[in-house]
């Protein structure tokens, strides 16, 4: 979904919801990746870097040239991590389930490619409407967030 709140606002509150607030890790993972820009940066990084991997490995193993591997890592992981930092102000918090999160990234990337992302997001929106205030400016946040925002004079 398109995030209408500010990066600073999302940075302050994205960690408000944790794994405990969701039915499963997949839903929590999607919550952290709802921002469309984050999704597209992940997609770009994976889509561009993967065809490069065999060449990068060949260069490293047989030519002792390591910059292609670094380029691959920079694209694959760099795009992912920097997308969170640039768009939501935090780096990924999926460490406890880092292994399974690979499959969710693959799942999401395939959905983006095939146009199945909207349906996936709609299911999330139906399931967890109370979390959307973080990304959607028009939705009211919980009372304590409103009070805190008034105190600090933060911009949504």
């Amino acid at each position: 979904m398109k995030a209408t709140t500010s990066r600073a606002f999302r940075k302050r509150y994205i960690n408000v919801y944790s794994y405990a607030d969701f039915d499963n890790f997949e839903d929590f993972f999607l919550y952290l990746h709802l921002n469309r820009l984050v999704l597209w940066m992940h997609f770009f990084g994976a889509f561009v870097s993967i065809p490069m991997l065999p060449w990068a490995l060949y260069m490293a193993c047989f030519q002792q040239t390591f910059w292609p591997v670094l380029l691959y890592l920079g694209l694959y992981y760099g795009c992912g991590f920097s997308s969170h930092f640039l768009n939501d102000g935090r780096i990924s918090r999926t460490t406890p389930d880092y292994g399974p999160s690979y499959f969710y990234v693959i799942n999401i990337n395939f959905r983006i490619l095939t146009g199945k992302m909207r349906e996936y997001e709609q299911n999330y929106i139906k399931k967890y409407p109370h979390t959307l205030w973080l990304y959607d400016k028009s939705l009211p946040p919980p009372q304590w967030v409103q009070e805190r925002e008034q105190k600090v004079g933060g911009q949504r």
């Binding site: 994976a46 993967i50 499959f103 969710y104 693959i106 799942n107 990337n109 395939f110 959905r111 490619l113 199945k116």
Partner: peptide
Amino acid sequence: AYLAVGYVCI
């Protein structure tokens, strides 16, 4: 192969 894994995941 990566995309095929995506298909299976979905």
